[in-house]
Amino acid sequence: MTDIVKRNARAILLDGDALVLIKRTKPGREPYWVSVGGGVEEDDATIEAALHREVFEELGGKLAHAELVHLITDELESGVGVQHIFAARLESMDLAVRTGTEFSKPERGGYEVVRVPFTSEAVRELNLMPPKLADFIAANTDAIVSVLDTPIREA
């Protein structure tokens, strides 16, 4: 059995009809886009709790609804990395209260919050990382919206 050495929680984050992403700019590299999210920490109660924490750290945001929709695995030197991909709706955002440590480190480059139309065409035009995530989103925009728009029934 392979050890899982790194877990991440990421959001395909919708705000109305727009996809919320972070545009990364670093000296000497072409700009690229990433979804909101990051590593699961030891004190996160669940992977979804890690997602909520990351959304707050990176956007000062709160989620209205999140559903696990995809997993991306990567082979790492000492095991496997698993990215848990959630479809989520943004309830609120206040960039003035975001707390991520990356924002106080200019050497890490720029982190610009951007909204792009949530269409296959718009996603394919971006240099969205990782490419596996870009492919999944572009192939499943209707399904992702359907998952988020389906009412949750209590058992």
Rank of each mutant, 00 (worst) to 15 (best):
G100M: 06
M93I: 07
G81Q: 06
G110D: 10
D149C: 00
T141H: 01
V36N: 02
V80D: 00
M1R: 13
I12N: 02
E58N: 14
A134Q: 09
H65N: 12
K23D: 02
R89G: 05
L51G: 05
A134R: 12
G16Y: 14
K62G: 07
G37E: 03
T46N: 14
V147H: 03
H84V: 10
I152C: 03
R89H: 10
G79L: 04
E77C: 09
V20N: 03
L59D: 03
I152Q: 05
L21I: 04
G39I: 04
K105Y: 09
N8D: 10
A138F: 02
R24Y: 01
H52Y: 02
L21F: 03
S146F: 12
M1D: 07
E107F: 10
L19I: 06
V114C: 13
I72M: 08
A49K: 02
V116Q: 07
F118D: 00
P151E: 11
L59C: 00
A88L: 13
E48L: 11
V69S: 11
A9L: 11
D3Q: 15
V145Q: 12
L68R: 04
E57M: 05
F86H: 00
R124C: 07
G60K: 06
L19N: 00
E112G: 06
A134P: 05
V147C: 07
V113I: 15
F103Y: 10
E30A: 14
H52M: 09
E125M: 15
M129V: 08
Y111N: 00
P117I: 12
G109T: 09
A138Y: 03
A96D: 05
E58H: 01
E58R: 02
A11L: 04
F103I: 08
K26A: 08
G100L: 02
D149V: 11
A96Y: 09
E121F: 06
I85H: 07
V114P: 01
D142Q: 08
S146K: 15
A49R: 02
A134K: 14
E102Y: 06
P130Q: 07
E154H: 08
P27N: 13
S146P: 07
R10D: 02
K62Y: 05
L126N: 06
L71K: 15
S104V: 11
R89Q: 15
R29I: 07
G61R: 00
L148D: 07
S35W: 02
